[in-house]
């Protein structure tokens, strides 16, 4: 468990990045910090491994105050994945993944064997082992970054907009990969993003941050979507507009779900014998499935199957581009 206890951070230039932030992040689950720039989300993340020191307050990992720990040793037992992968350009893929175990004096052969295993875990072809990061595509580099973050088998994985710089298709792949990994590994993951869709897709818990690290709302995606705590949250998650403001429309004997922009988002599940009743792999897409319906459909008890995933649209409904 990671606990923020009255954390504040004022940078030397006077900006108050985080103001009296307190929150408990449960173990073995994904907590997503989401907010626009200036919300202090990255600052909060970087305080966990002491890349940034709080001005006041404490951060506890399993009841141990991180301020009491040696920052270098602390960082070596926490996985860190960042945007643009942050790979060491002068080390091969294998060397990059084995970096932290080698810093921890794990015998070389063992570290390399473990790195090869991890390449497999994150879906990287073994042929890349001896390539340098510059020879890889953005998505492949990001996979190496994830493998490196997992190399010491840390309990905690910090992810700072790790998929922010890759194209939408690759991002979707990586997100699904992360969810698959998390089912196997069950790490305590703190994930920072400015993308609310990513937050709802990945997070067991989502913390929506306003300026200065103020918690606008914290809860499961379901709780936040069904009951936005404020105007700000409703606006931020776009609950009453665009892709999330769904209404129903009868057409050719079927009930279509139409989003706020007037586009067809999907077909209502119970009405379509051949159509997808639930969409997506794994049980996680329920967050997207339980999108709040507009008032016209509030009484409809059906399960909505939006075509936002790359699942087959057997019902013949045009696929809807997910705005990113």
């Amino acid at each position: 468990m990671i606990e923020f206890d009255g954390i504040s951070k004022r940078f030397p230039d006077g900006t108050l990045a985080v103001d009296n932030f307190s929150l408990r992040l449960p173990s073995r689950e994904i907590t997503v910090f989401v907010g626009s720039s200036g919300s202090g989300k990255t600052t909060l993340l970087r305080m966990i491994n002491r890349m940034v020191e709080p001005t006041s307050g404490r951060i506890l990992i399993d009841d141990e105050d991180v301020a009491q720990l040696n920052p270098v040793t602390l960082r070596r037992r926490i996985g860190y994945v960042m945007q643009n992968s942050g790979l060491l350009p002068h080390r091969t893929v294998l060397q990059n993944i084995a970096t932290v175990p080698l810093l921890n004096r794990v015998p070389r052969a063992e570290a390399v064997a473990r790195a090869r295993e991890l390449m497999d875990t994150v879906g990287l072809d073994a042929a890349f082992a001896n390539r340098y990061p510059a020879e890889l595509s953005g998505g492949q580099q990001q996979r190496v970054g994830v493998a490196r973050g997992l190399a010491v088998n840390p309990n905690i994985l910090l992810m700072d907009e790790p998929f922010g710089a890759v194209d939408p298709i690759v991002r979707r792949e990586l997100q699904e990969e992360l969810l698959r990994l998390q089912q196997e590994l069950a790490k305590t993951i703190v994930f920072v993003t400015h993308d609310i869709d990513e937050a709802f897709l990945l997070g067991d818990h989502v913390t929506i941050l306003a300026r200065g690290g103020q918690i606008a709302q914290h809860g499961t995606p379901d709780e936040i979507l069904s009951n936005p705590a404020s105007e700000f949250v409703a606006d931020f998650i776009g609950a009453d507009r665009g892709r999330r403001a769904l209404t129903l429309r009868e057409s050719n004997g079927r009930t279509l779900v139409v989003d706020g922009t007037g586009r067809i988002a999907g077909v209502l599940g119970a009405e379509t014998a051949t159509g997808p009743v639930s969409v997506g792999a794994g049980g996680r897409d329920e967050h997207l499935g339980e999108i709040t319906l507009g008032t016209e459909a509030a009484e409809a008890p059906h399960e909505v199957a939006p075509a936002v995933n790359d699942a087959p649209t057997a019902s013949g409904v045009p696929e809807v581009d997910t705005p990113r």
Partner: peptide, 24 residues
């Protein structure tokens, strides 16, 4: 960013210089 990543991985300042900054 690479230096930052090296710090996050757990390189101390001295080691970071010799193994990351100087080689690069």
């Amino acid at each position: 960013q690479v230096l930052d990543a090296a710090t996050a991985l757990g390189y101390g300042p001295w080691r970071r210089f010799w193994q990351v900054q100087f080689p690069l």
